[in-house]
Design a protein around this nucleic acid. Structure first.
Lengths: 341, 341
DNA sequence: ACGCTTTCAGTTATCGGTAACATAAAAATA
DNA sequence: TATTTTTATGTTACCGATAACTGAAAGCGT
């Protein structure tokens, strides 16, 4: 492995001079600089960042802790974050928690041992505050993405779950639906709570019923074929007058699971049941826009959170924490249908 | 930042003793070990990997250079790789090249400066051999994923493009298609060449025509709305007897672009044109299996390539390079239709 | 009880950089 | 020309961990 000492010897200068050339610091005579640059090129020298970070106390590496990059929403987030990282000279360490609190814990430790400069995290649940605090103890600032956590004080980039939820339910009501069920994510996740709030308030505002069993919690983690089956079965076996004509699935994965279950019960979408959800179901939307969704600007989520993180790192004047709430776009498509009175 | 020296002071031992406790090396009295462990817990100490890597000469970090994690195929690859990395105690540095050779170059340098122990890479084209060699010069072994490159000697994990291609075309022929076009990826990518080879051979074997314009190159990079438009337009404006009744799109992204163009021309799939392609178009397949595809085991691609890489790192006895070719699964679905003679 | 081996813990030097200080050479000033 | 200032480069020490060596204490056999 070629080091700064090899360059120094070859160029007949001290290692420090080489360091100065590399970092463009201090004063260097043109002739010296050229000698050194020649040696660097000839030996194909690339600085050892591990050694650098030992003195500089920064690694130029950021942690990206997502729940599952297989979800197109998070894939786009990662893409946005990575692009911005490249632009600002940072590297990205990737981690998938699978909504598992324990995995999140070990990845948190991994990020600490890797001495990342900062972390972007989609917390698995409200308990995740522990992990954020652990990172803070080690002077690693954290930006929360998509979900926030009770008691969290730092920067976060969120979607407007409440508003999107209201608009989706509003749309269903406009289409004449009265029995609307919510298949929600776990309630210990902020987005689930916000979406439920929007759902409940909009129904109440329109004097519509929220029968028991209308709201159910679906575990994001179970991506098994029939995850939503028991939930959907229960909904669809309600008495005729209570049986939902529309289902609000809290996110894209849940929507897919719900539609699978409906298929299995020989129920058609939208003829028998209308469906809405948060987040696009890509790449279908490109060629066969089907789902009525509250689309969130996923790439922006990634870019902005990385931007915030970098600004906090390079700008210690930043005291105030910042919170952005990005509004979703409602796309009305074929998964929802008007029903007659 | 709490270091090994802080622990040493607190436990009233030397730093070396602390190091021994952490690494479980050498002989330590039980009482001493407990003292040290207590101090570690109390101060929440986590070793600085940057410092470690300086002596050990390994970072326990691997580079994953993909073209675009937004493609579900690569998202799954990343997932598989990451899972295996976690299992074997490695971290993953993520990079997206966007099929851009220059980006690949800078990411290669990034990986070298980060002193990753190894790299998994989907090369952008045949020139990428340069980058692999550059990595090799710095003693960083590389596993190629999905695509190989002329002159490459190391490990690689590929799909069976040739066989999959033959089976897809075979299927179209079985369904009565005689005019079959190929919208291929760039020919400086191994998978494109292999798929074209399978396509051409199968047509020839069945005495079917390959008219001019039947084979076109589509640039993966242009994910713009109408990327395939001119290609599809040209195909569809051929004389009646030459106009293709089926299109073989080289991969999922191309298929989406093609189907978009067809839509725009008011042509239906599969009624007017049948379509087949490589790789699933997830997550649609879960709830509305539409595309007839050669599905590749993406997660396995990731897992196996990481496995290979780690084995090479930890097992310097490995001289021979290894090459796996994973066969695709053909799923016949609704994007293809029988046509009468 | 004496010498010899084994166990346990500490010292020193090093990995590859850079900050901080030191010094030599060149330029500016008196 | 002598003196000060500026510019260019070198030296030393240190970041946090560990390998290699050294030394002290404990175990062990006769």
């Amino acid at each position: 492995m070629v080091t700064i000492y090899d360059i120094a010897k070859k160029a007949k200068v001290s290692p420090m001079t080489v360091s100065r050339v590399i970092n463009n610091s201090g004063n260097i005579r043109v002739a010296t600089r050229e000698k050194v640059e020649k040696a660097i090129k000839e030996l194909g020298y690339i600085p050892n960042e591990a050694a650098r970070s030992l003195t500089s106390n920064q690694t130029k590496t950021l942690g990206l802790i997502l729940t599952d990059i297989t979800n197109p929403f998070f894939a786009k987030v990662a893409r946005g974050a990575e692009a911005k990282a490249m632009e600002t000279g940072y590297r990205i360490l990737l981690a998938n928690t699978d909504e598992d609190f324990e995995k999140e814990k070990s990845y948190t430790d991994m990020m600490i041992s890797a001495r990342v400069d900062g972390v972007i995290m989609t917390p698995t649940n409200d308990e995740s505050l522990k992990h954020v605090e652990r990172l803070n103890q080690h002077n690693i600032p954290t930006v929360l993405l998509d979900r926030t956590v009770e008691g969290f004080e730092g920067d976060c980039v969120l979607g407007d779950s409440y508003k999107g939820s209201r608009e989706l339910v509003r749309h269903l009501i406009d289409y004449g639906h009265k029995n609307i069920a919510l298949v929600n994510g776990p309630r210990n996740i902020s987005t689930s709570r916000e979406r439920e709030r929007g759902y409940v308030e909009t129904l109440k505002l329109n004097d519509l019923p929220i029968h028991e069993n209308y709201i159910s919690e679906f575990d994001f983690r179970s991506m098994e074929p029939h995850a939503a089956h028991s939930i959907v079965e229960k909904l669809m076996s309600l008495d005729e007058d209570k049986r939902p004509t529309a289902i609000f699935a809290s996110n894209n994965f849940i929507a897919i699971s719900v539609i699978q279950s409906l298929r299995q019960m020989n129920l058609r979408v939208p003829e028998d049941v209308s469906i809405v959800c948060f987040d696009e179901i890509e790449p279908v939307e490109y060629f066969d826009p089907f789902f009525t969704v509250a689309a969130q600007p996923a790439t922006e989520f990634g870019k902005i959170s990385l931007q915030y993180l970098v600004e906090r790192l390079e700008n210690d004047g930043l005291e105030q924490s910042r919170k952005v709430i990005l509004p979703p776009d409602i796309h009305i498509r074929k998964s929802t249908q008007r029903i007659e009175e």
